[in-house]
């Protein structure tokens, strides 16, 4: 199978969690002789080429981060420029988000289930996974561990030719936080704040308080 992959994150490729996930996914998918071509919506000057590739390919994967409970505005902007097709193109989705629980991604998944029909295409399943916020920040060894399941998911997709709903649901676990996990997260708030401040300082070179309120005076 040849798969057209469009990375729909607006973030620059070097800092993109979605792209790192895609690289792992492709490792599994291509291991069995499959091929891919990958494009990036963040590179707006390539949109004409992406439109051409969409017109020419019948197996398409859109990979995206969750933005305010649905697809990023930039992705919608691109999709609105596509010419609907004749009905045999299959579109699959790879959706990732920062919060750990799978349930946080279900609202967007529900939209993705309807989207291919608007483009004259066939829905071919969604692989979704939360807890991906730190993929770009963690050390290489830890990143490999986080991304390893996506290598397997790529292999599975090559075998199935789609994202099987039941397997995708298992992949998305945990669907909800267990009471124990929620308690641990509550108790670890001071540690969590320390980690975020460390990321801000080391990766963003910022020492501003992360809960700064620069516009407090205008709030009514």
């Amino acid at each position: 199978m040849h798969l057209l992959i469009v990375s729909c994150t607006p973030r620059a490729v070097a800092a993109s969690n979605t792209d790192k996930i895609l690289t792992a996914f492709c490792e599994g998918f291509e291991a069995q002789g499959n091929t891919t071509e990958r494009y990036y919506l963040a590179r707006r000057d390539t949109w004409p080429q992406i439109r051409d590739a969409f017109a020419q390919n019948d197996d398409v994967l859109f990979a995206l981060p969750l933005f305010v409970e649905c697809v990023p505005g930039m992705m919608l902007e691109f999709l609105e420029t596509l010419t609907p097709k004749a009905g045999k193109t299959k579109i699959s989705f790879l959706l990732q988000g920062g919060f750990v629980e799978g349930c946080q991604l279900r609202c967007c998944e529900a939209y993705l289930e309807t989207l291919p029909a608007y483009l004259g295409c066939i829905y071919n399943g969604t692989l979704l996974k939360g807890g991906m916020f730190g993929v770009s920040f963690v050390p290489d060894q830890q990143r490999e561990k986080v991304l390893a399941p996506f290598v397997q998911a790529g292999t599975q997709f090559a075998q199935d030719g789609c994202f099987d709903k039941q397997k995708a649901n298992e992949f998305a676990q945990p669907e909800y936080l267990s009471k124990g996990k929620a308690l641990v997260l509550r108790l670890s708030k001071p540690v969590q704040k320390m980690v975020f401040r460390k990321i801000a300082k080391e990766k963003m070179h910022s020492t501003e308080p992360l809960d700064a309120k620069p516009f407090l005076q205008v709030v009514k």
Partner: peptide, 15 residues
């Protein structure tokens, strides 16, 4: 469009 850069959370909080 939002670029998803996280600056409003981590680099210039609130902006």
């Amino acid at each position: 469009a939002c670029l998803g850069c996280n600056s409003c959370w981590l680099k210039t909080p609130g902006r």
